[in-house]
Nucleic acid binder design. Structure first.
Lengths: 251, 251
DNA sequence: CAGTGGTCTAGACCACTGC
DNA sequence: CAGTGGTCTAGACCACTGG
């Protein structure tokens, strides 16, 4: 008869391991509980530590685990729903009630902004822009960092007061935006990896997966401002709409 | 004087490598061009292959590279903008002009659907649901796979004809949906990893990063259907709004 | 068939956390 | 300080693609 085994598919070890661990998380561990360390887990499953880590990486990507250097691996709570836009969705950043906190603002030259932002705004080298940094904290932990690009021409009423602090400057730019009409917002979501600067704000390591939301604010057919917001992909579920009730992940 | 070097941060090798490669991609390679193989690249940069691969993984995650087993690593084109919802956004799946192709449909028991879907729909074991599989192809390549869950109670007019084929059954379910009123849609976007089944449809390996879009279709305050769509995270930029012009990634 | 990327190993050292 | 996860190495073998 020869070999009766049907090894047709040849599942990778780390993939099978991930499944086993995932089931174990569901049945044998509580949220926040700390797992055995990687060396012990690898030994227990009879695999190399690198293979075990490949499985853990997957589970962390799916938001099931949280790993912290020097501490350990813990079971993550379900992802939090983070409202990005409600259907009405017509309000400037900094409008009353938005979830963001201004950090600071600096004036930069048009040549120093990402190419795609410059293209959207129609700016180039020689133009002056305000860059407002903002941060977002939900349920007590930082979930997103943002860079808001506002061409100086979009906020002509802004007084150039060099004596005020960086936070006040950020507030001033946001305040000026509210005076403008807003015809609409246009968003795009894509996967990215955290830059060193963002990573620090988000309390993650550089390169951590993030959801990058790019928002174009449109007035009279022209783009008045562009926001690039990076959300922690491991802990956030971005919601579009009014409600906030639905968590699904079939992986 | 001792050590004058300011190694304050200690950048990981793979991170630095990623930066170098990213710059090289911008300046020295054209879209579609094939890179040297991993062993050569690793040798050229004086690192182990595993380290080189860690850098390549990052770049693939950011949509800069495309790797295919047995073929090689190529420079990826910019991510394509994939419209997920326009602002009007009030139409059932299967409405004329939508980008999806029905694959098949099966009837399942309420106990066999993901817990989160069951919760949203208010179904449980014993209830009957239609599950419609759909696929989405943009610019000539598959970008997304979808499972659409429709409680049998939502489409009472559906004739139970066992003689028709699976594709026709999918079309029939979609056709019945159009007869219902639709008050609104509610979406959530999160990061996931491709299940084996999805991976095959998307022409990727299992575990590949995907953007999971969960859509609740609401009629009269009740959820009439739930769609779980998984988009290739490496090649797609999900757009919300009417236009489709803006690509940004600051990583 | 040769060449590619994908998986896996066993071991080492480093950076960070908390006691 | 001991213990954790993060990085890195050198090598092996496998699965897949294309000529």
């Amino acid at each position: 008869m020869g070999t009766t085994q049907l090894d047709t598919v040849q599942e990778p070890k780390y993939w099978h391991l991930k499944t086993v661990l995932s089931d174990a998380l569901d049945s044998e561990f509580a949220v926040g509980e700390i797992l055995p360390n990687e060396r012990d887990l690898a030994a227990r499953f009879g695999v190399a530590r690198a293979t075990l880590r490949q499985a853990l990486e997957q589970l962390e990507l799916e938001g099931r685990l949280q790993r912290r250097r020097g501490v350990g691996t813990t079971v993550a709570p379900p992802r939090m729903g983070v409202p990005v836009a409600d259907r009405s969705g017509h309000s400037w950043p900094g409008a009353p009630g938005d979830a963001w906190q201004p950090v600071d603002a600096v004036a930069v030259d048009g040549g120093a902004v990402p190419a795609a932002v410059a293209e959207a705004l129609g700016t180039g080298a020689g133009d002056s822009l305000h860059v407002v940094r903002r941060t977002r904290v939900d349920h007590g932990q930082p979930v997103a960092a943002e860079l808001l690009y506002v061409p100086a021409g979009s906020v002509p009423g802004l007084v150039a007061d060099a004596t005020i602090g960086p936070v006040a400057r950020a507030r001033a730019v946001l305040h000026e935006l509210q005076r403008l009409a807003l015809d609409g917002e246009e968003r795009a979501v894509e996967l990215g990896s955290a830059r060193a600067e963002d990573a620090k704000q988000l309390d993650r390591l550089p390169g951590a997966p993030v959801l990058v939301v790019t928002t174009r604010y449109v007035t009279g057919g022209r783009t008045t401002a562009v926001a690039v917001s990076t959300y922690r992909a491991d802990t956030c579920r971005l919601t579009f709409g009014d409600h906030d009730t639905l968590d699904v992940l079939p992986g």
